[in-house]
Write a protein that binds this DNA or RNA. Structure first.
Lengths: 197, 197
DNA sequence: TCCTTTAATGAGCAGACAGTCCATTACTGA
DNA sequence: TCAGTAATGGACTGTCTGCTCATTAAAGGA
C-alpha cells in the first residue's frame, strides 16, 4: 500500500472536483461559487465531496502543494542555468514568470471576488523567500529582527500590490518588465525610479 | 427639512446599530458577526435594520465618511502647522497617526477575520493620496501614466503591508517611527535602509 | 473469476443565516 | 391634537452548509 497507489475511483473523483472548481473560478470568480455549483459541474454526489474535502477552501488549497513544487523546480532550474545572476530579488522573477504562465488561474483569484485565502498563501510564500534572501544579503542586520521584518513586510506588500494591479488591469508588461520595475523600486527607491530614464 | 434635521428616532436607531457593530468587531472581529448578533446587541428589530442599511457591509461603510472627514481635517491641520515639511509622503504620516490613535478600531479590521471591504477602502484612499503627490513631485513622468501607476501601486502595497503587520503583531513602534521606516524604504530603497544605521 | 473491501450515491435532514413582508404600536413634530 | 412616519416582532421564503445512512457499484487481490 504505497503512497502513490490510491484507488482509481478516488483519483477520478478528486480530479473531477478539482477541474470543476477551476473552470468555475475562471467563469465567475471564487467567492460566489457554492459547493452545490461544484457538485453539479463535477457531477458528483454531495456526500462524496465531504468525504474528500472539508469545504471549498480545502479543495482549492489541496492543489497548492503542486504550485509550491512547481515553483521550487522553476527556481532550481533558474539557479543552475547559464545566465543566473545572484541577485537580491531574483526568486521573485520566477514568481512573476510563474504567475504570467498561469495567468488564467491567478487572475480570477486576484480579482475583487477572488480568494483571500490564496493571496494569503502566496503572501506567506513570498515573505519566506524575501526574508531568507535579505538575511543572506545583509547578515549584519540579522540581529535586529524587527527592522528586518519591517523591510520584509514592506517588500512583500509592494510585490503583492504590484502583482494584483498587473493581473487586474491587463497591464501590457511582461514578467521580466514587471520584475525590472519592481527591482528598481525596491533597491533604488521611488525617486530614482521616476527620474531615471 | 435641512440635511442635519433627521428624525430623532432615526438618529437613535442608527447610533445603536453603529455602536453595536463596533463593540462586536472589537470582541470577535468582523467576518463572523451576523446580522442577528448586531440586532441582539443593539436591541433593535430585524426589519428596522433593513430599513436603514442594505447589509452588514453597508452599516460598516456608513461610518466611513466620518473617517474621511477626520483624515482630511488632520491633514489640513498638519499642513498649516509650524513644522510642516513639504515631504513626498507626508500625508501618510497623518494616516499612520490616525491609525495609531484609533488602533482599537483598526486592529480587529486588519486581522485575519477582519474586513476586506475596509482595507480596500483605505487602500483606495491611500492610492489617491500617493498618486496625487507623485504627480505633483514628478511632473515629468505624468505623461507615462502606466509607469506612474506602477509606482503608486508599489508604494500603496508596501504601505498597507507594513501597516497591517504593525497592527497585527503589536510592534513597539510609534506612528512616527513607522513613518520614518516607511519613508526611508520608499525613497532610498532596501539596501540603503538595511545598511545605514 | 470470485469475493471482500471500499468508494460513490442520493435523498434527506437540521441548523444557520439573509432578506422580505405586514399588521400593529408608538413616537414625533407641526 | 393629530397626521405622518418610524419601530416592532414575528413569521416566512429561500439558500446554503455539513452530516447521516442505507444502497449500489466498482476495484483489485487471491
Amino acid at each position: 500500500m504505497g503512497i502513490a497507489r490510491t484507488d482509481r475511483r478516488v483519483r477520478r473523483t478528486r480530479e473531477l472536483l478539482r477541474r470543476a472548481l477551476l473552470s468555475l473560478v475562471q467563469e465567475q470568480g471564487y467567492e460566489r461559487i457554492t459547493v452545490q455549483d461544484i457538485l453539479d459541474r463535477a457531477d458528483v454526489g454531495r456526500s462524496t465531496f465531504y468525504a474528500h474535502y472539508r469545504d471549498k477552501d480545502d479543495l482549492l488549497l489541496s492543489g497548492f502543494e503542486d504550485v509550491r513544487a512547481a515553483l521550487a523546480t522553476e527556481r532550481e532550474e533558474a539557479e543552475h542555468s547559464a545566465g543566473a545572476k545572484r541577485e537580491l530579488l531574483q526568486p521573485l522573477l520566477i514568481v512573476f514568470r510563474h504567475v504570467e504562465a498561469h495567468r488564467h488561474f491567478w487572475e480570477p483569484l486576484a480579482r475583487k471576488g477572488g480568494a483571500e485565502v490564496v493571496v494569503r498563501i502566496l503572501r506567506d510564500y513570498v515573505a519566506d523567500l524575501v526574508r531568507e534572501h535579505l538575511r543572506a544579503q545583509f547578515p549584519a542586520v540579522a540581529k535586529n529582527q524587527v527592522q528586518l521584518e519591517a523591510a520584509v513586510q514592506f517588500v512583500v506588500g509592494a510585490f503583492i500590490g504590484q502583482g494584483i494591479w498587473w493581473l487586474d488591469n491587463e497591464i501590457p508588461y511582461s514578467a521580466e518588465e514587471m520584475y525590472s520595475i519592481f527591482r528598481r523600486l525596491t533597491t533604488r527607491g521611488v525617486r530614482s525610479f521616476l527620474t531615471t530614464t
